[in-house]
Nucleic acid binder design. Structure first.
Lengths: 150, 150
DNA sequence: GTCGCTGCAAAACGTTTGCATTTAG
DNA sequence: CTAAATGCAAACGTTTTGCAGCGAC
């Protein structure tokens, strides 16, 4: 397996060079926390983790840094019902969607080629040039079904 | 065609009776405006229309009334990227999704049985009991494609 | 006369911005 | 030295809430 975190660092650095942005210790802490994260983090999640390493970092810096990661294509912003923005690593060639438990919020990521094809056809049928999509399934996960039955 | 507005009124009345809620003139104005509406209305949209008939109505009442309509299954709340909640009539057996133009925000509603079947299979494959979904396709509509080319 | 509903204004919420200060290059 | 980045607090836009008075039943 390749070192994907190093690839993230390189891509970020390239973007920052291009835009004349600077590498500060706070920015490095936020991006490293994000790069080694899994799943879907809120700003709060990131901030809490960042403050373990550098307690002085403020909300604004985390917001600004995640905006930067979004701009250079390293982070995806998601909105799941509750009013909070969540961020996840944008792996290349991985455009998955989400299956979310309405009881415990467990998230399964899925990718379904057949659905993607149908989406493409549907857009074309309406004359649209498809650019992206948001697809979320809401249901009750196996564990919560058992909990209900028990 | 049946009088669907009368069906909405009846369903709302049944819910209000059940919960011991009262029928006020403001509430009637808001619900009537909503029942005869088309498409996806923001609170502001509804309020503006309501104030044509009754200029005194406040934001809070519209929020509270749409929450009520949501609770009794007559309204669906949607979130399309911009931070605004939008509401539409929840027609029975009509669980359509949206194809949204990223340039002009034009919205096409679609319903695709094949996709629904695949969603159902996918949920089952992960052991989930499917309850609902959110499916939005983002692209460029024919008009905006022409505008770009032209 | 209850108790739900209203309008208002204030609060809450997540997010963004202005600014004086710090710091990378 | 310049200009970008920071932390703070204040501003923002949307939504919710507390409350005194009003009105349905």
């Amino acid at each position: 397996m390749v070192d994907s975190i190093q690839m993230f660092r390189d891509k970020l650095q390239a973007y920052m060079d291009l835009k004349g942005l600077r590498s500060t210790s706070q920015r490095r802490t936020v991006t490293e926390v994000f790069f080694r994260s899994k799943g879907h983090l809120s700003i709060e999640d990131v901030l809490l983790e960042v403050r373990v390493e550098d307690p002085g970092v403020g909300y604004a810096t985390v917001y600004r840094t995640l905006k930067l990661l979004k701009e250079c294509g390293l982070a995806l912003e998601r909105h799941f019902g509750d009013g909070v923005s969540r961020y996840e690593i944008a792996h290349e060639n991985d455009h998955h969607d989400h299956l979310i438990c309405t009881d415990c919020n467990a998230i399964v990521e899925f990718e379904d080629e057949a659905i993607e094809v149908l989406q493409e056809q549907l857009a074309k049928r309406h004359g649209y040039l498809l650019r992206g999509h948001k697809h979320e399934l809401y249901g009750v996960c196996p564990a919560c079904q058992a909990k209900r039955a028990g």
